[in-house]
Design a protein around this nucleic acid. Sequence first.
DNA 1: TCAAATTTTAAGCCAATCTTAAGGAAAACT
DNA 2: AGTTTTCCTTAAGATTGGCTTAAAATTTGA
Lengths: 222, 222
Amino acid sequence: MRILIVEDEPGISNFLKQGLEEESYAVDIAEEGKRGLQLALTGDYDLLLLDWMVPGLSGIEICRQFRTEFKETPVIFLTAKDTVDETIFGLQAGANDYIKKPFNFEELLERIKVQLRPKSGEHSVFELGNITLNTATHQVFKSEEEISLTQKEFALLEYLIRNKGIVCRRSRIIESVWDIHFEYNTGVIDVYINALRKKLKLGEDENYIQTVRGIGYVAKDI
Amino acid sequence: MRILIVEDEPGISNFLKQGLEEESYAVDIAEEGKRGLQLALTGDYDLLLLDWMVPGLSGIEICRQFRTEFKETPVIFLTAKDTVDETIFGLQAGANDYIKKPFNFEELLERIKVQLRPKSGEHSVFELGNITLNTATHQVFKSEEEISLTQKEFALLEYLIRNKGIVCRRSRIIESVWDIHFEYNTGVIDVYINALRKKLKLGEDENYIQTVRGIGYVAKDI
DNA sequence: TCAAATTTTAAGCCAATCTTAAGGAAAACT
DNA sequence: AGTTTTCCTTAAGATTGGCTTAAAATTTGA
């Protein structure tokens, strides 16, 4: 996996280069905007790390021009700015994620992994036992039969299936599916799990959505 | 791992408590500053989450006084304020990190893990003989077989494994796993040790959980 | 704008889990 | 050996948390 860093502070870029190379990424550095864009367009990278402010061309501008050519390659911003406005601005420019300086390297690494994950073979079709979920067409089938799910039902099922085999904690589910971060003294999850099990007509031997008492739920092929 | 939250808004603190407990931290809450400081100084916590503004004593002041006694224990500020000045002020008071409200629980969790990493050893997978315990997925395996444990069973096993080779006193166990600080004339530990041994089907030659008469228990790979 | 579909809240019920308690077994001490 | 202490084991009561349902709130679509 090849990563391009566009960053004018040698301290930061070298630190990143070393750390990422230890994780066996191939890393190039550009210290100036135009050079950065040139490399980005010609260098066949799998991911871009752009500083918000670089001499020559701003990270934003690099991202925008880069996006006209490469639609899929993920871009992560490193930024000292943290107002919501500018974040949104950055994301509109086509960035996939951003991370605030000073940042934690582990965290950056996690975000890089998240961005690279799709490339290393993510399909839009997921399976769970005899259930098929297609995120592209937004359809769910059980064996041959199509199951009609509402948005939330679909989102919940998708979350569980994407994390197949991993116990999903309630707090995570409520954050990821409902985007609620505080005060969740709510029973929505239960209601939707119930709806899913019902609509999917999970029989005795089809316990694909198991509850883990006190923690949450887990999807299993059994 | 024991965490103290000093926060006067019950909505936030309860949300945090629940979320963190699902991640198997032992959580106490103080809603008022002086009480918070008192607990912090006496409670043997591994990490403090301090709200910037709490009635009684400000988070800053709690942090400063706490630091005169405990140099190592990490402190994270929860703050609605986000100006650089105040952040620096907070960090000078001895905080290890700060996070702005409204924050994302995942992010907070990451930061907590970063702070606790040196102590906890970074990994979420622990081993004891042929037993594997994964705190991230909340699963336990013996050889290939998955063993289903309840919350308390899991917490107890985790505590013992994290302290592998170290004899764990009953009083410590009851503090860390049950969050009981006084009055431990109770037989719960015995009951749960018994349940663990049973569920893990520990045979003659698999005495991974040994009792130390008069003191407590110790986990050993043998 | 009104009706229908979806989402969320709330409450009672039930089952899993947690805790207590008590009798028996094993170890340590006299 | 007898006594005492500590631990193991079991079972029953208390508690918690999840399931289910129905109704209220919200959103969507005609």
